[in-house]
């Protein structure tokens, strides 16, 4: 069991996003540049280090759906915008849930240019941990165009999950689209699978979205939830 999971279980809450990124890093999974800030000053420092534009997200054990709580501000261009966004997020979140425990605000690099994918994990009643893959947005939500495989996962399984979805041609560069880094996506899925196998306390996991860049350009998780 990873130390962060042990700590979260002891405190009876799920991993927050900063902890999820730390867990990911320990398994060699790429994470966006990020820094947890507990004041506007800390946030300014973080943005200076990461470089504008940045994204700011609430970190609270009581808030699972950050956007619903008004806890996300994107495309912040400068110090002034950052200061405004910081206060707005705190205000929104407390209006959404007045007793929310605020652990801070995560300042992240603003990523662009990736095709949005989703990787999820659920526990099946018969087969245990099961990985899901799909393209983001309407592909998963409306068309339910997703594929599943149970763990343990082989590289072949990961690749077949990617090729199985109906919209897979979008990843392979059909109709004037650029071909995406399918291999890096498969590698990511394998690492996620190993992380899940090592930590059976993980009940549910979402990487949504995960950007996949042009072939050779790799992938980058943009948002992650790890439920215990």
């Amino acid at each position: 069991m990873h130390k962060l999971i042990g700590k979260a279980l002891a405190d009876e809450y799920h991993l927050n996003e900063a902890e999820a990124w730390e867990l990911f890093s320990d398994y060699g999974i790429p994470t966006p540049q990020h820094q947890l800030a507990r004041s506007v000053e800390e946030a300014l420092d973080a943005a200076k280090r990461i470089g504008y534009p940045v994204v700011m997200k609430i970190v609270s054990r009581n808030i699972l759906h950050k956007s619903d709580a008004g806890g996300v501000e994107v495309n912040i261009m400068d110090d002034e915008g950052l200061s405004e966004a910081y206060h707005a997020i705190i205000e929104n979140v407390l209006a959404y849930k007045s007793d929310a425990v605020i652990d801070g605000i995560l300042v992240c690099e603003m990523l662009k240019g990736g095709l949005e994918c989703i990787i999820g994990m659920t526990q099946d009643a018969s087969f245990g941990p099961t990985l899901m893959f799909g393209l983001g947005g309407i592909f998963v939500e409306v068309l339910e165009d997703v594929s599943f495989r149970v763990l343990p996962l082989s590289k072949e399984d990961a690749l077949s999950m990617i090729y199985e979805i109906k919209a897979s041609s979008l990843l392979q560069g059909a109709r004037g689209q650029v071909a995406r880094d399918v291999d890096a996506m498969a590698e990511l899925m394998l690492k996620v699978a190993i992380m899940i196998e090592d930590n059976p306390e993980i009940k549910e996991l979402d990487i949504n979205p995960c950007f996949v860049f042009e072939a050779g350009g790799g992938i980058m998780p943009v948002d992650a939830r790890v439920m215990l």
Partner: peptide, 15 residues
């Protein structure tokens, strides 16, 4: 019987 998801069973068949 324990009924897991059919989509998951379908995946098991493929694997």
């Amino acid at each position: 019987s324990i009924a897991g998801s059919d989509k998951v069973f379908e995946a098991v068949c493929k694997q």
